[in-house]
Amino acid sequence: MDLRIFTEPQQGATYDTLLTVAKATEDLGFDAFFRSDHYLRMGPVDGLPGPTDAWVTLAGLARETKRIRLGTLMTAGTFRLPGVLAIQVAQVDQMSGGRVELGLGAGWFEEEHTAYGIPFPKEKFARLEEQLAIVTGLWATETGQTFDYDGTYYQLTDSPALPKPAQAKIPVLIGGHGATRTPRLAAQYADEFNMPFGSIADSERQFGRVRAAAEQAGRKADDLVYSNALVACVGKDDAEVARRAAAIGREVDDLKADGLAGSPDEVVDKIGRYADIGAQRIYLQILDLDDLDHLDLISTRVQSQLP
């Protein structure tokens, strides 16, 4: 089971804070550092000093880390034209020496679009399908060849399809709870399917849909990695769990029901139950980015117990 650190910087974080967490992620033996792609805070927080851009952040981290994978859960398709996104991600992959992964979603948070003058189209999912075709198509085009695409929303003509990533293939992540279109897109384009904040039962059901869609598309179901994103709140004892829950404005019972909360042994047990239904990787949503002792505890008392 891979454990990855997943951050929500729109809630309030500077680049320096994110760099500190990314370096701790690397030093403590976690597999990857991922971040959300949002420009507006959510809930009763001030969000200060303001948003940081996902791919600008990852470009910086690419030069200041050595081992960990770097990526997004999920890049909002509404924020960037697909040709521009393909260039940005390929460049950051080169800057990292081939450690980048792209989670790409349709975008959903209308308020952040109106706050920053970003169009919020109605046909977001149809646009996402074209974006996936373009981004992956540009990267797959052989050097010296050109790429063309004539879609409903995007048209590319005689694109040199440059630059190329450092990796032969950048892993693409698709996720969500949708019962039909999401599994179909994952089967067509994804290297990894991520179930965000889903129960064990809901995850098992959705993994089954994706596996069936993959086989229907002519792929082996096991060609994809299956993962979960879950909020983490771990403590050595009940008092520490309660303190960490309070720091992020959550109730312990809710965190235990919906996430990975409790003692290290409790969390290891719940991770095992996700593994039993096919999860191979978990993104630990860390909401208090100043609490590096939390990461240390998860590394030494949770990660160390996992196969």
Score class of each variant (00 low, 15 high):
Ala90Cys: 06
Val45Lys: 00
Gln88Phe: 08
Gly98Thr: 07
Arg35Thr: 15
Lys124Pro: 05
Gly137Asp: 00
Gly105Val: 11
Ala76Leu: 14
Asp31Cys: 12
Gln91Phe: 13
Arg67Met: 04
Phe34Val: 12
Gly107Arg: 03
Ala115Lys: 02
Gly97Phe: 10
Thr114Cys: 03
Glu129Thr: 10
Ala62Asp: 02
Ser96Glu: 01
Phe33Gly: 00
Met42Glu: 14
Leu61Pro: 01
Leu40Pro: 03
Pro121Leu: 05
Ala126Asn: 12
Glu129His: 10
Val100Pro: 02
Leu28His: 03
Glu123Cys: 00
Ser36Val: 11
Lys23Glu: 15
Ala54Leu: 08
Leu102Val: 06
Asp46Ala: 11
Pro51Trp: 00
Leu61Met: 02
Val84His: 12
Leu81Lys: 14
Gln91Ile: 14
Val56Gly: 07
Ala133Glu: 15
Ala115Val: 07
Ala32Asn: 08
Glu130Gln: 04
Ala140Pro: 09
Gln88Trp: 11
Arg99His: 11
Glu110Pro: 04
Thr52Phe: 02
Gly107Ile: 11
Asp27Thr: 07
Glu26Phe: 06
Gly47Arg: 00
Ala106His: 10
Thr114Pro: 02
Met95Lys: 02
Gly97Leu: 06
Leu104Tyr: 03
Gly77Tyr: 02
Tyr39Ala: 12
Thr146His: 06
Thr72Arg: 04
Pro119Gly: 09
Thr141Ile: 00
Asp93Gly: 09
Gly137Arg: 02
Met95Asp: 08
Ala133Gln: 13
Gly77Glu: 01
Val56Ala: 14
Trp55Tyr: 05
Phe33Met: 00
Gln88Ile: 15
Trp108Gly: 09
Glu101Met: 13
Ala62Leu: 05
Thr141Met: 01
Ala90Val: 07
Asp53Ala: 13
Gly144Leu: 05
Leu58Tyr: 02
Val100Lys: 03
Thr75Gly: 01
Ala133Pro: 05
Leu58Phe: 06
Arg69Cys: 08
Arg127Asn: 03
Leu104Pro: 01
Leu58Gly: 08
Phe109His: 15
Phe79Met: 05
Leu28Met: 06
Ala24Gly: 10
Pro119Gln: 01
Lys124Asp: 03
Leu73Thr: 11
Ala59Cys: 06
Leu81Thr: 12
Ala133Arg: 13
Phe147Gly: 07
Phe147Pro: 02
Val92Ser: 01
Gln94Ser: 12
Trp55His: 12
Ala32Gln: 07
Leu81Met: 13
Asp31Val: 11
Leu58Met: 09
Thr143Gly: 11
Leu132Thr: 09
Tyr39Met: 12
Thr52Cys: 11
Asp27Ser: 10
Ala62Gly: 09
Glu64Gln: 15
Thr25Gly: 10
Gly29Gln: 06
Met95Arg: 05
Gly107Phe: 09
Gly43Gln: 07
Thr143Asp: 15
Trp55Asp: 12
Gly43Asp: 08
Asp37Trp: 03
Lys23Ala: 12
Ala115Pro: 02
Ala133Ser: 14
Met95Val: 12
Asp53Pro: 05
Thr136Asp: 11
Gly60Val: 07
Ala126Asp: 14
Gly137Met: 03
His38Trp: 10
Leu138Thr: 01
Gly97Ile: 07
Lys23Trp: 10
Thr136Val: 12
Pro121Ile: 06
Ala106Thr: 12
Asp53Asn: 10
Thr143Val: 15
Leu61Ser: 07
Val100Ile: 15
Glu130Asp: 09
Val135Tyr: 04
Glu130Ser: 03
Ser36Cys: 09
Gly103Arg: 07
Glu123Phe: 10
Thr25Met: 07
Gly105Ala: 02
Asp46Tyr: 04
Met74Pro: 11
Asp37Val: 06
